[in-house]
């Protein structure tokens, strides 16, 4: 017979630091300070925060009777996502909460958008892709959700996308920010090729490059490259581009942006 493993005192071998620092804060308590005053907006923000996609369409329709679609998107749906981001940042929510909340937000947004007088005004356009030859795309997909939830129009080209395709699409669709994800050291070289091809055709824009294989040193070795290690950093970096910062300014203030100081 093998050992009685239950007799092993694991506390002498390992420490569950996650349990040691486990937060006792409740999502509702934290949310209180961020929730909108208006009862309709509040309800919608709470639907997003509580991952309730069942009633959100109904709640948005109700709110449309008294509020504008823009207001509902900005101050209800996106405000709800802000709370979710805050809870995720504090380690109270896990990533799946963010994804499911974002599904709820998307459903609500569709209803609100149908009531918009004109085109929806996004903060800006972010074009994303995973490098030529690279099938790893889950990090990119997570980043896409966080960017959408922050009010960006995300154009996702997909994975294993040819350098040529990326360059063509950038010229055609003129995004504010381009992003690339590579998890293999043998595919990341596509990024420097994209950078030089864009330069040739006279296009300059911040090009956020991420994924397990890349590091800051490599990304900063070609023009336009802005490094990111975490999907949660995406909105912060893209926001700077919308504020009019060019890639050089973003790059030289990178540490401050990432640490929330700029």
């Amino acid at each position: 017979m093998s050992l009685d493993f239950d007799a092993v005192n694991a506390d002498k071998i390992l420490i569950r630091y996650d349990i040691v620092v486990e937060s006792s804060e409740k999502p509702e308590d934290i949310a209180k300070q961020y929730l909108p005053e208006n009862q309709f907006l509040r309800q919608i923000a709470q639907d997003v925060m509580n991952l309730k996609s069942k009633d959100i369409e109904k709640h948005v329709s109700e709110a449309l009777e008294t509020l504008s679609a823009e207001e509902i998107i900005e101050k209800g749906l996106l405000a709800g996502m802000d709370i979710v981001a805050e809870l995720y940042g504090r380690g109270i929510y896990y990533l799946p909460h963010v994804m499911v909340a974002s599904d709820a937000m998307t459903r609500g947004t569709k209803v609100a958008e149908a009531a918009l007088s004109g085109e929806r005004k996004y903060k800006g356009v972010v074009m994303m892709h995973a490098a030529e030859g690279d099938p790893h795309d889950i990090g990119k997909n997570i980043a896409a959700v966080l960017l959408k939830s922050n009010g960006f129009n995300v154009v996702d080209l997909g994975k294993d996308i040819l350098v040529d395709t990326v360059v063509d699409e950038v010229q055609k669709q003129k995004p504010d920010v381009l992003t690339g994800t590579a998890l293999m050291t043998t595919t990341m070289s596509a990024f420097s090729r994209i950078s030089s091809r864009l330069k040739e055709v006279g296009v300059e824009l911040p090009f956020i490059c991420a994924g397990g294989a890349v590091n800051r040193e490599y990304v900063e070795s070609y023009d336009m490259g802005i490094y990111s290690a975490k999907a949660a950093e995406g909105p912060g970096l893209a926001n700077k581009a919308i504020e009019g910062w060019d890639w050089k300014k973003i790059r030289s203030n990178w540490d401050d942006i990432i640490n929330g100081k700029a």
């Binding site: 093998s2 050992l3 493993f5 092993v8 694991a10 071998i13 390992l14």
Partner: peptide, 25 residues
């Protein structure tokens, strides 16, 4: 060998749910 095997297991059995279910028993 079975002693070493069990030492390997004892080291990580309770480190997380995934090691727990992959312990040979």
């Amino acid at each position: 060998d079975k002693v070493l095997r069990d030492i390997y297991v004892a080291s990580d059995r309770f480190r997380g749910a995934e090691p727990y279910i992959l312990a040979y028993d």
